[in-house]
Design a protein around this nucleic acid. Sequence first.
DNA 1: CGGATGGGTTGATGTAAATCAATGCGGCCA
DNA 2: TGGCCGCATTGATTTACATCAACCCATCCG
Lengths: 275, 275
Amino acid sequence: MSGYFGAGTRAPESELEIIMSDMPSCQFESRPRRIVIGSGGVQADFCTNCSVRPTSVCSVIEPSDISRLAEVAVETIVSPGRGFIEEGAPATDFFNVTSGTVKLFKALPDGRRQITGFAAPGHFLGLAVSDNYAFGAEAIDTVRVCRFSREKMSELLDDFPKLERRLLEEASNELVAAQNQMLLLGRKTARERVASFLLDQMQAGLLPGQPPPSGGRLHLPMTRGDIADYLGLTIETVSRTLSWMRAQGMIEVGKGYAITIVSTAKLEVLAAGNS
Amino acid sequence: MSGYFGAGTRAPESELEIIMSDMPSCQFESRPRRIVIGSGGVQADFCTNCSVRPTSVCSVIEPSDISRLAEVAVETIVSPGRGFIEEGAPATDFFNVTSGTVKLFKALPDGRRQITGFAAPGHFLGLAVSDNYAFGAEAIDTVRVCRFSREKMSELLDDFPKLERRLLEEASNELVAAQNQMLLLGRKTARERVASFLLDQMQAGLLPGQPPPSGGRLHLPMTRGDIADYLGLTIETVSRTLSWMRAQGMIEVGKGYAITIVSTAKLEVLAAGNS
DNA sequence: CGGATGGGTTGATGTAAATCAATGCGGCCA
DNA sequence: TGGCCGCATTGATTTACATCAACCCATCCG
């Protein structure tokens, strides 16, 4: 019930920081090593030239006000496997994904993990009511994010009412996705889950800002383990189900992360529940 | 991407309508029979005296502007088992629950159902990006809701910026709840799910506007079937799990809808994953 | 080069929860 | 009053998926 965008505390920033994968393991680094590239003034075209601006929340800021945005945004590069939001940690920042794919997740004390979503370029991260993040976030491939402190975000919201409406739209979209995922997790079979997932991924690939997926060719950046944690299954079940779909002539499973959808229709029948 | 609060079309309303349970079955009634009580002018204290105003989104409207609210709100009574939002139907209205409990759900073509949440008094309903509802809503017990057309809600949002921020807070809260539920549905065992549910229900009962739950006494308005559909289980598993918890001395299962929580600690250990 | 490591597939086996089934109970109404 | 219906509980059986395990194939690196 208290202030929604509570003011966080954070030292002044420069333009570009990099969260390096300087350790072989994937452990979380809550105080990332920062490499500041450039210093002093802000490039005027920093946000103007942003590739995801047309599809992100930033699109509601008029070109004339874009410098306001560039002033408070800090671009950060996160290397694969590295976390940049820790579940339960103080929520100091908001993020906007500008390239790469992020996995969002919650975990139980014993390590069981549920991925609650994948964030593609243009996705806004960090909406949280409490002063702590309700979920963790980790880069799947190399990820670039734009970071805003809660403090500065709050100022922006005061000055640009459109931004608030856009965030509400964003939140509502996520809510709809979350409801779909609850239906999937609570009531769908393994085959239905995987089919739904593949169709969703294809749909996501059709959105602007992504490489055009010609044919039914998908390039999934996440591992089988990630897919399993997203669908509430095990790695083995995901693998077996994909093999089964291949045997049914629904998909082709390429080497690495490539999957080709051969029959959208068959997958849709499956996903809808005609198991 | 189009207008968020699209303007719906709706005939002028009066103050009170009742969606009757005039049929023994529970089938959905998309065109409810309306019984208008009173006519003409609007009571000035309609919203002022609203019991849930302090805890609902309406609280951000200043007392001086409260008449604006009363002008566009229509109170509706929904009898038990009756639906008032149909999944997929055109999203014409927003709702604010003022008494009773509502179940929100999504369904698969073959009838499998997932309850995505229960809405208690003060809860705001109807956030949807598209022009169609993404979920259905049905009264569990006798429910009173305040209804706003999208059209009029849109006007309110333009005039009261605070309302927008409050809605964002509401949406974010729901998002956090949805993420918790995804973790539950994807990764928790039946016992963990039921334990989490009971603790959540106790927590919800402690919030203002609800009858004070003295002791660990809960009065769950929903059936075992509803609980099962919420937790992604079957009726039998819910029943067996409750019986097991009773045998463990964690709870007492009273007649009807009463459950008493004997050991919060034991339930918390269970819910956290120490199955 | 050779061994370690991480990701993936496939097979054998186990099990938690679903399904099938019987019974009890309270409310409703003909 | 008796029969029906919805809801709940409990038992027997089945099953979809998890678990355990073996193996392949890259990539990495000493």
